[in-house]
């Protein structure tokens, strides 16, 4: 299996501050790889090194088989980058944003126009081709940003929190388009705050915290390794239950106290709930659900991803 991206002991420092502390991972060609982590985990610093814009401090990074230090231009020619913000050109129309961006890649005018029309259909913006960018909704701007990242038929697309701030419909439309890209054999590197997004899209992922990798694997692998099958969410009138802590300790149940609820990790949620009731723990609200990546993160770091 070929690799689209490979990092070995990759580090990034800003003066005395080390943002990325020696991480190693590989993105196989054609797969979707996700980097999860709270703000300040080192995700964006890693992404910027992959785009070749930010120099690697130490370690090795290979992007599409090339070294970013010496082949920056050649790498960028085959990358698609969707940044966190929609930095579109407000002085151009929707279509011009794509055509003129294509020219940066040396694509001929004729090919740029054909590709722009094709991409506008792909992201469902064909009817807005001649409009200015400003009146577009947040979801439309995001789709246009994604289309712009595809003008050069990239081999690797980097998406930095692509659905932040979008409504559920817009998110699902984007996921669908990203899924189609993956089917076309494009490798995707995705950072996100949203666990459901990573679960939906990622073949493999790493969880980063404080510049290091806390865990790596497929979403199901990580849940199986670091979490119980199910999670019971308990809510109490006084936010916490004094009895729960001791009952959990006696029963060997792992619990996590969050500001608004308490999580109980168990392979059988119903059984755990009955057991707690027998021991005198009576929450005002309960919910049994399957474990998610967010629970994995909590289990690994003891805090929420969105903190």
């Amino acid at each position: 299996m070929t690799t689209a991206l490979s990092a070995v002991d990759l580090r990034k420092s800003f003066g005395d501050f080390e943002a990325v502390k020696g991480i190693s991972f590989e993105v196989p060609t054609g797969q979707t790889f996700s980097i999860l982590g709270p703000n300040g985990a080192g995700k964006s610093s890693t992404m910027k090194m992959v785009t070749t814009v930010s120099p690697v401090t130490s370690g090795s990074l290979t992007v599409l088989g090339m070294d970013p230090t010496t082949n920056g231009r050649a790498i960028r020619a085959r990358l698609g980058v969707v940044p966190q913000e929609d930095i579109l050109d407000s002085e151009m129309t929707v279509r011009e944003n794509l055509v003129m961006y294509s020219r940066y890649f040396g694509i001929s005018w004729a090919d740029a126009r054909t590709k722009a029309d094709e991409l506008l259909k792909f992201v469902q913006l064909a009817d807005r081709a001649g409009d200015k960018v400003e009146p577009l909704s947040g979801g439309m701007k995001r789709r246009l940003t994604i289309a712009r990242a595809l003008v050069n038929d990239p081999s690797l697309v980097l998406l930095d929190e692509p659905t932040t701030g979008l409504d559920p419909q817009a998110r699902h439309l984007l996921w669908d388009r990203l899924y189609q890209l993956k089917e076309q054999g494009v490798s995707l590197l995705l950072t996100t705050h949203y666990m459901d997004e990573a679960e939906q899209l990622a073949d493999r992922l790493i969880i980063m915290d404080n510049g290091t990798i806390s865990a790596e694997g497929s979403p199901t692998q990580l849940i199986a390794e670091h979490c119980s099958k199910e999670v019971v969410e308990l809510r109490f009138d006084n936010r916490t239950s004094p009895e729960l802590q001791s009952v959990a300790e006696q029963s060997g149940l792992r619990i996590e106290n969050l500001p608004d609820r308490t999580l109980v990790y168990a392979d059988d949620g119903d059984a755990a709930l009955s057991h707690l009731a027998e021991q005198g723990v009576h929450p005002t609200g309960t919910l049994i659900r399957r474990a998610t990546l967010e629970d994995v993160f909590l289990a690994l770091t003891g805090r929420s991803l969105n903190e």
Binding site: G72, A74, A77, I107, D111
Partner: peptide, 14 residues
């Protein structure tokens, strides 16, 4: 070879 491939094929950074 397309324009993008031509740029991508450049071995050294200019």
């Amino acid at each position: 070879m397309t324009a993008v491939e031509r740029i991508a094929a450049q071995s050294a950074e200019t």
